[in-house]
Design a protein around this nucleic acid. Structure first.
Lengths: 121, 121
DNA sequence: ACTATAACTTGCAAAATGCAAGTTAAAAGG
DNA sequence: CCTTTTAACTTGCATTTTGCAAGTTATAGT
């Protein structure tokens, strides 16, 4: 992770958009959230099976970070990791609107560059 | 940029969310869009003055990419670069909803981790 | 107890990022 | 018009992040 201990994030400014990107501004974090919105819960190996094929070290890193930020959590906090899925917290569920807006934008605006893109609805 | 020539982007899947992140899933691209939504037009040096302090090589790379994707364009396409600002295209303006959703989420959910965060409204 | 396998970790190569300095060319001033 | 200024980049290199393959650990099932 290579992030400091007080906050897991180094905030670049006070801007909420910039701050959102400080957390979620990469190619993988929101895909984890997407999978949880779609499926409700997901185990480590289920995340690995998504078509974008996240590598295991990045997946482990992002699951830790999203957990530290209170965006996801273990379904059963007291159980061992094996088959113990992740789920969204309230904060994570609130990201649905961000994902919907992004998905709609992509479908509406990237179809000429990416003809195979599918609709979210 | 290190991207191939047919499409400037390598699409990881047909998912519109994943595809949106293929384009905009980094810490800088949406900040350029934010500055243009806030100010209407912006020159190279004005972008550099934003509080997040984007470095000049990344800025140049992103301006090229966002232009290639039809998200931004020069205000006067025929004029020389000097003092010729960028503006959003229709596609770029449509990102406003994504930014609003992200900004609202951050302000609502990250205030305990980042007390200095300000509201977008 | 043994085995299978889910959930990671580790090591290293490749790519992206960050920083400082340098280059180019248009335009403003003399 | 010729010099000077400076906006808009480019380049080089160190650092960080990512990607890939392989290895390790531990628990659930037999």
């Amino acid at each position: 992770m290579a992030r400091n201990k007080e906050s897991p994030i180094e905030w670049r400014s006070e801007c909420p958009i910039s701050s959102g990107l400080d957390i979620l501004g990469d190619k993988w974090s929101l895909l984890i959230v997407r999978d949880l919105i779609t499926h409700g819960t997901r185990t480590y190996s289920e995340f690995s099976e998504s078509p974008e094929k996240i590598s295991t070290n990045i997946l482990a890193d992002r699951l830790k970070l999203l957990t530290a930020l209170g965006i996801i959590e273990r379904v059963d906090a007291d159980r061992s990791a094996r088959n113990n899925a992740f789920q969204l917290t309230k904060s994570g569920k609130d990201l649905r609107k961000v994902l919907e807006a992004l998905g709609r934008w992509s479908y509406a605006n990237m179809r000429d560059l990416h003809p195979d893109i599918v609709s979210i609805d």
